[in-house]
Design a protein around this nucleic acid. Structure first.
Lengths: 211, 211
DNA sequence: ATCCTTGTTGATCGCACGATCAACAATGCT
DNA sequence: AGCATTGTTGATCGTGCGATCAACAAGGAT
């Protein structure tokens, strides 16, 4: 019947303990949001005293923004990696739209939305948010510029269009967070919208079949 | 040197006091967000004891969601009112896009974004968020259906496209909240994207000149 | 076997929150 | 003038937060 007596945490190297805390913070954020990142919460998950978590972090704002950056950067790199496998710009753009709207990353979307709000009161986090947004925008911009080069697209300001597409994807994902029901073929509609923006031929950015 | 002695608040009718509290909550939310809506905060603004605010509200969740609904519904009705002055669907759609992206309502956008997150832990608020989103979607849907009727647009699923446009607008506004710099002619890009979605002729949805 | 470094504890401080409620006082009625 | 109604106060409770730090103990070095 010993619930969880756990006398004392085993002594570990600073690097190992820091990694544990980082990982615990990541899990908590994905499950319950950045707001759930408290000293006591993280400590409980790691199985140590709250003071130890504080010992490994300058302050909680830093832990929050680092956790945000860790989660979001991983997603960016994962999706960017998938892009390189595609033959051309139209296919890459289609994959981007498709992948980002497939609802398999709603937990990450929730963190984005939360970070937009928390950033108003956590300057460290705000800086991190801008940095990660820039990274995403660069991914889109690269695809648009590719399309310009091959003649598939016709865009005068690739950076602006990239920002625009990113904003649309974010908005649709945030919407799915609150209203998961409703529209099904979001990818198809967005693909058509994006075709209009990049000056691609209608139907050239094809949403992957739902299978 | 009497800072603010204010012995005791003047006695007012319940209706009047309730209105004061509602208004104070509205102002606080617009200035500092829904999270800043605390008993003590609202009470201080009205100039009464914290207990009185609690007396007029069943609980804080209710005050938060009512305040959200008040602010957001006012915006919806204001913009919807402007629509009726426009001659045709293309102009209405252009006005919608233009008005919503003119950055004059970023404080309301901030409240939307915050509500998306807070709704995860405040079911009353979540219901209110869905309700207000539906109202916005209906506005867009009406415009799209108008365009279908006049032949200006060609949309098979007006409801879905309306959701889509709403999501895009929300996303671009949220982006402006974090990155106010960057893209200028968001209206033009979005207009082009929307033309693609509604099947309108390129250039038929014209963004108002920035003057 | 002893000591010293250092990872770890947990109590503690100050603060802010929502909620509650007995006591108070202003107002209007009789 | 006296009284009942009711808007209002402010102290209080319990909770949770970030942060701090003296005390403790595990492990390696000697």
């Amino acid at each position: 019947m010993s619930s969880t007596p756990q006398k004392r945490a085993v002594r570990k190297s600073p690097a190992e303990r820091a990694a544990e805390i980082t990982e615990a913070a990541r899990e908590i954020a994905l499950e319950a949001g950045l707001t759930a990142l408290t000293l006591r919460n993280v400590a409980a998950r790691v199985g140590v005293a709250s003071g130890l978590v504080a010992h490994y972090q300058p302050n909680m704002d830093a832990l929050v923004s680092n956790t945000f950056a860790t989660i979001v950067a991983a997603e960016t790199q994962e999706v960017a990696g998938l892009l390189s496998l595609q033959p051309g710009p139209s296919e890459r753009l289609a994959l981007l739209v498709d992948t980002l709207l497939d609802n398999s990353r709603l937990d990450v979307t929730a963190i984005w939305v939360e970070a937009w709000t928390l950033g108003r009161r956590n300057e460290t986090l705000a800086a991190s948010v801008r940095e990660q947004m820039d990274a995403w925008q660069k991914v889109f911009q690269g695809v648009v510029e590719d399309g310009n080069a091959t003649g598939a697209f016709n865009v005068s300001d690739a950076a602006a269009v990239a920002w625009q597409i990113l904003g649309m994807v974010d908005g649709l994902n945030a919407q799915a967070l609150v209203r998961w029901d409703g529209v099904n073929d979001r990818g198809t509609h967005l693909a058509r919208a994006v075709e209009g923006m990049v000056g691609a031929a209608p139907g050239s950015v094809v949403a992957k079949p739902s299978g």
